[in-house]
């Protein structure tokens, strides 16, 4: 099903695989004329399937803006975003909605839960939007809650949870549709270091066991260091890119294991 969502553009020239997300000459300007503010300036970036990438920078440097553009939640002022080699400007309406619904998962710093709904309702929201049948969506949501170790809280009201539990619910919501890419914007930003660790373990577990591509926006150096790659942003520009030593081996095993899981 997921394969039919986007037909990958055939890899031309080199033997390099098609990046799952590719960004070229990306700029974003907020406001007009006198109030214009360039939040992103000529960003070039390739992210491959199974990678974990940290976008790191100070507050206000443009990390979230970049993430929103890569997740096709916003339109760039100039430049292109390609998903599996397909230009995002060609993805509109139904296709775009299906992509967001089935291909991406989101985790936000502020959680964004519907506080009056039950935990279960919150987790199965993407499935509800994706028109999954009532019975199977409950099953899938319980499975996702089991992964984040919150199956026993399914019936609780979302407001009654602690911060760490809330974020785990959000992770369950992000993985319930079995996405290819998870975008996490400061996932530990609102949590103390102890609970933050649990969230981090969960995210990287998904990356390693299922081959989910992880794009983490953070200002936390320790969290960034756990990723395969660190993309550093200052005032809307990429200043450096670093790779963690064991990244390559990790990535290949991740891809292999991810494929196994798909079958």
């Amino acid at each position: 099903m997921k394969q039919s969502l986007i037909k990958p553009a055939s890899a031309s020239r080199s033997s390099e695989p098609v990046p799952i997300v590719e960004v070229k000459g990306l700029s974003k300007t907020y406001g007009k004329k006198s109030t214009a503010f360039k939040a992103l300036d000529d960003i070039n970036l390739k992210i491959f399937s199974g990678e974990s990438v940290a976008i790191i920078g100070k507050s206000g440097s443009g990390k979230s803006t970049l993430m929103h553009l890569m997740a096709l939640l916003d339109n760039p002022t100039s430049g292109t975003v390609k998903i599996m080699g397909v230009n995002a400007s060609k993805l509109k309406g139904k296709k775009l909605n299906r992509l967001r619904n089935k291909y991406f998962g989101f985790v936000f710093q502020q959680f964004f839960m519907n506080p009056n709904d039950s935990v279960l309702e919150n987790v199965l929201l993407p499935l509800k939007i994706g028109k999954v049948k009532r019975f199977s969506r409950k099953k899938l949501a319980l499975k996702a809650l089991d992964i984040v170790d919150l199956e026993n809280k399914a019936k609780n009201k979302a407001t009654n949870l602690s911060g760490g539990q809330k974020q785990r619910v959000c992770i369950a919501r992000a993985i319930v549709n079995n996405p290819k890419v998870i975008f996490a914007d400061e996932p530990t930003g609102n949590l103390d270091s102890g609970t933050g660790k649990k969230i981090v373990d969960l995210l990287f577990g998904l990356n390693k066991k299922r081959g989910v591509t992880l794009i983490i926006v953070t200002h936390d150096e320790d969290l960034a260091a756990l990723c395969d790659r660190q993309v550093r942003i200052v005032d809307g520009k990429i200043t450096s890119e670093t790779k963690t030593r064991q990244a390559r081996t990790l990535k290949t095993t991740a891809i292999r294991e991810g494929r196994k899981e798909d079958r």
Binding site: L73, K94, L99, N101, F112, L125, P126, I129
Partner: peptide, 13 residues
Amino acid sequence: TREIGLDKALGMS
């Protein structure tokens, strides 16, 4: 507003 944003981010038309 925020709920609508979330619904849209999750692919609601």
